[in-house]
Design a protein around this nucleic acid. Sequence first.
DNA 1: GGAAGATAGTTTCAATTGCAACTATATCGA
DNA 2: TCGATATAGTTGCAATTGAAACTATCTTCC
Lengths: 159, 159
Amino acid sequence: MLKLDHFLPYRLSVASNAVSTRISLSYRKRFGLKIPEWRLIAILAEHESLTPLEIGQAGELDKITVSRAAAALIERGLVTQRRNPGDGRSHFLSLTNDGRALYTEIAPAALAMEAELLAGFSADQREALEVLLRRIEAAAQSADVGTAAIADCQQPAGV
Amino acid sequence: MLKLDHFLPYRLSVASNAVSTRISLSYRKRFGLKIPEWRLIAILAEHESLTPLEIGQAGELDKITVSRAAAALIERGLVTQRRNPGDGRSHFLSLTNDGRALYTEIAPAALAMEAELLAGFSADQREALEVLLRRIEAAAQSADVGTAAIADCQQPAGV
DNA sequence: GGAAGATAGTTTCAATTGCAACTATATCGA
DNA sequence: TCGATATAGTTGCAATTGAAACTATCTTCC
């Protein structure tokens, strides 16, 4: 019989919510960033210049979320827009100097938080955890396709 | 430097969202249940009769969520309320026969879904995953306390 | 070269969610 | 025993979120 307490989707959700709540609080309080905004900054920090579509693909964000996060960050002067010469519907986003400066502040804090969460885990355990999470994700997504053919599916945000 | 793709909170969130989305879709389509409603049913199936407060503690649901889920389930005749002789502010909730019948339909489906997600995982791996998730959850929550003393804190739902 | 359909991104509207305020009951202390 | 405070649960309101509709541009095909 099913025991909720040992049910994987439940445990996964509880763990993820605990982590998200903790991090979200911290980003918001210290930097005034919501999670999708932070995620957008992290992606741009790694990729220099991307279109909203590419950002969505890189960070599992739906296009609405990217659009709103980008608007907020542009407003704050952390991100800039450039025309995309190859496609007039689109545009490139990149970090401003201020955006980059903020990132160099946040990144260490984020890594410290991660370290705190993983304190006491061996390198092997960390590696194993990542692998397991990726496999579960893949299984859930492939199952999605079988369940309901969702073409332009929106995905919820998170950390 | 931080790589989002290998950042634990990110991976955890992405995996959890993938699973939640998949399951949520399935529960809603097949049984007309939202996630907190399903969770409430699962808890009552294991505990016979509980107050909303106890349900919240058992299932990491905040009191508002329990209240609304219970109202919806009572409306559908899947759950009943009984006075709590020991405390007039509170009441006991339990499954009706219909509720129990629904549970016996859903539980196997839920377990099948879990099995699908964990297909190819060894028993050791499953065990390890659960342990890791619990430890991360505990770490995130103990950190919470340090960050902001939140007494009657609300928690987001999930699967 | 222009109509038909596809795609990038934004906006609008409805549903969900959470906080804060509220009601009702219980407990504590003088 | 009664006033003050705490607790269980609900409700109102504001903020967040997502689906669908919309605008603008691009591509295809006649």
